[in-house]
Amino acid sequence: MKTMPKTVFLGGILVLLWSWSVWGQAPSNPAPSKTIDPAYLLQKHETESDRIPDWQARWELARILSYVKQYPESLREYERVLSERPDLWEAKVEMAHVLHWAGQSKKALDLLETTTEDQRDEATRLLMAELYVMQKAYPKAISIYRQYIESHPQDVRIRAKLADVYGWSGQYDSAIAQYKTALSQRPDDIQLRRRYAFVLIWSKRYDEAIVELRKTLPPEPASRNKPE
């Protein structure tokens, strides 16, 4: 008990010193730091929109494989893209083109038929027409070609295709009309004129066919019977 007051006395002094040390100290204003966070150097500067998703990379791979004519590999990649992103109609359309190049016309057509009209650009519609021709679905092909020719009347190549399909489907008068228009635009096209001549033959207009076929042959040498 004798030592207790001394202990209390010393304790009081300590409390006093502590209170001044804690509350009485006015720290000096430190100099601003010159150290920049080094973590920034380790951070990749990549937002979510910068990231190339796997399906996108795979789609690019599928395209390149088709450019280098590795069609089976390309088609495999397109299938994987479409299994992940079935809504990606552009990939469907591209895949259909690759299927066509790979000789799988029926599959190409089936795939294109799963797309809507507004998802098909002109090249795709023309591809569909070609595929319909291969499937001998001539009315569907004619419908596409006619629609195209209405907006591109100067396209002789497609007009000639339309004429061909008319001919194969037995609509000779329509075929002849289209050939005539095409030949008026390209009178020196020998192959076109011969196709025209064949349709004339199928429609039993032999005299006209002979005239047209003669035009596609080289002229007979005029000097053969000429007296010297």
């Binding site: 007051p5 209390v8 006395f9 009081g12 409390v15 006093l16 209170s19 509350w23």
Partner: peptide, 26 residues
């Protein structure tokens, strides 16, 4: 001893008071 105790109590009170006053003024 009684005086020592009184001093100690005074010191303790002044310590606490200074801390309290510092809070008020700072």
């Amino acid at each position: 001893n009684r005086q020592l105790l009184a001093f100690a109590m005074m010191l303790l009170c002044s310590g606490l008071a200074s801390a309290y006053l510092y809070r008020l003024t700072h």
